[in-house]
């Protein structure tokens, strides 16, 4: 096991930002962290990168308990691309070579790795090696920052929204480079990304976070409140487009429900159905996952839902991104968190 977290808590000003009872992370996999803002994704990444110490609990990395004394040693194998990654005020080649020089690689290896890393992120070394940090666009700067991490061939690469502020071309190149790092060096990738389609299609494991807790391992739809109580014992959430989501059961304190993607069905036409929820939505993304399954990301009002369907079902319904379709699920499919 690469990481083990036991009863880890992190407080900021007496507010618990993260509370993980148990978490095991295996090497060589891609883990995706999903959850709304403030759910503890970045806090978890920073703890896994040994940038922050947990307020309570224990982290075990490759069988050794992590302490403030040995954290810098483990940081030689683990690196993180911060959300607003900044470059050092140096040339591109010095930025990418920085970590390699710290690790005392010989100059030939440094040169080779710098060129290789820049090529991995789609930057021509000939054009970029001698550019200063301030001569790059936002997307180029982000790719140089990623190249500086890839050059290290790290055991663990933690990414905090690596494509949040970049153009589409940079986004695609960053995503490709990350997958290549996993394939070529068996780097474990732990990433937060707004690009759910990419995340769900690439990640081996998905961890859903809510209010600092890991609420589910695997893809899950998380729907926050407010919920209106109805006379028939159901609760309803009004979406901005006027549609309503109905759920049953007694609400939890958090007022948040989760629905498994496998509980969500897609229908071409509105039909009579025993399911309480029939919602008209728009297909944002489709991506293969786990072989024959297709993950469909759907937009309904202000929320996104993910449904898992078979390849065959997608073909029968002639699904494609951009088309409108109906979503069907029972009120009992939702679980209060």
């Amino acid at each position: 096991m690469l990481y083990e977290l036991r009863d880890v808590k992190r407080f900021y000003n007496n507010r618990c930002a993260l509370s993980v009872d148990r978490l095991a992370i295996e090497g060589g996999k891609i883990y995706g962290l999903v959850g709304p803002n403030g759910s503890g994704k970045t806090t978890l990444l920073r703890i896994l990168a040994f940038l922050d110490e947990p307020s309570e609990g224990q982290i075990i990395y490759k069988g050794s308990s992590v302490t403030s004394q040995n954290a810098s040693l483990f940081r030689q194998e683990v690196t993180m691309l911060l959300q607003n990654a900044r470059l050092l005020t140096r040339k591109v080649k010095d930025n990418v070579a920085y970590g390699l020089k710290l690790r005392r690689y010989d100059s030939k290896t440094v040169k080779t790795r710098v060129v290789e890393a820049l090529e991995m992120v789609g930057l021509q070394p000939r054009d970029f090696l001698n550019r200063a940090w301030h001569e790059l666009s936002g997307g180029e700067a982000q790719r140089v920052a990623l190249a500086a991490r890839l050059a290290l061939r790290p055991d663990v690469l933690l990414l905090d929204e690596p494509t949040a502020n970049v153009d589409k071309v940079s986004e695609a190149l960053i995503n490709q480079a990350v997958i290549k790092a996993k394939k070529e060096w068996k780097t474990t990738i732990i990433t937060v990304s707004h690009d759910l389609g990419w995340l769900y299609s690439t990640a081996d494991e998905i961890l859903s976070l809510w209010s600092g807790r890991i609420v589910h391992q695997g893809p899950e739809n998380i729907i926050p409140g407010p919920w209106e109580k109805l006379e028939n014992g159901l609760y309803c959430k009004r979406l901005r487009d006027g549609q309503k989501i109905y759920v049953s059961g007694a609400p939890s304190q958090s007022g948040v429900v989760s629905i498994s993607p496998s509980e969500i069905l897609l229908a071409e036409h509105p039909e009579r159905t025993s399911a309480r929820n029939l919602l008209y939505c728009f297909i944002r993304e489709m991506a293969y996952c786990n072989g024959s399954q297709i993950r469909v990301t759907l937009s309904i009002g202000e929320i996104n839902l993910v449904a898992l369907i078979t390849d065959e079902a997608a073909r029968e319904l002639k699904l494609s991104p951009g088309m409108n379709i109906y979503v069907v699920f029972k009120a009992t499919a939702a679980k209060w968190l």
């Binding site: 690196t79 050092l88 920085y98 710290l102």
Partner: peptide
């Protein structure tokens, strides 16, 4: 973020302060 950037690239101790 400068400190964090240097830490994530492996700097520590005197080297971190100098950089």
């Amino acid at each position: 973020s400068v400190r964090d950037t240097l830490l994530t690239l492996g700097a520590s101790g005197k080297r971190l302060l100098f950089d």
